[in-house]
Design a protein around this nucleic acid. Sequence first.
DNA 1: GGTATAGTTTGATTAACATCAAACTAAGGA
DNA 2: TCCTTAGTTTGATGTTAATCAAACTATACC
Lengths: 102, 102
Amino acid sequence: MAPKRYEHPELADVPLAKALAALSDPCRVAIVRRLLDAERELACHEFELTQSKGTVSHHFRTLREGGFILTKVSGTECLNRLRLEEFNARFPGLLDLVIAEK
Amino acid sequence: MAPKRYEHPELADVPLAKALAALSDPCRVAIVRRLLDAERELACHEFELTQSKGTVSHHFRTLREGGFILTKVSGTECLNRLRLEEFNARFPGLLDLVIAEK
DNA sequence: GGTATAGTTTGATTAACATCAAACTAAGGA
DNA sequence: TCCTTAGTTTGATGTTAATCAAACTATACC
């Protein structure tokens, strides 16, 4: 069967409100922070989140739709990485706020 | 009777997610934008919002708790102004994103 | 094929939030 | 004192978002 495809919006099409809404949940801020620290791709299960699989999947989707991350399938897992340069160009300073946070 | 007192959080105590959640409503973004443009104190009723008084009061409270504004009583009205320097020091670039958007 | 792992999707529940109307508080002016 | 203006608070309703469990998809390995 055809492999799963993830939709990634053009950053120009992501409204500020949508990006900010994606960061309005502390859990998602933590995910972004972790990706900033790691500086490498991370699978969803590497975040050791306390919520159920379904909820975690929802948070990653929200970050994807907010333009924060790219997700690709790799074997049985899916790897996530920040759209770092692109995102900084579209929303300058926003990721820096996440870095600065605590 | 004792005059109304408004609570204003220490900006250091405002989590990023809380500030961003305050910006997740278009009405509140509009209020912040208006204050940025006005560069002076504005009473709630000067915003000519379409919602009921109660709802408007709720939005201003949310912005207060998000660290965006200071409110003080003046006669029968209450005057609002941005905590501009403070806020820029706590969340550098965030207000600039609001200015830049559209 | 059978089993395990990693995520997604769906359906239902719960928690937050936006909203309004109405009652209330506080100050100003007749 | 009475009336008006400006805003808050409360109680109720509708909507959106977070959450979980369970069923499902896709890959890897035996």
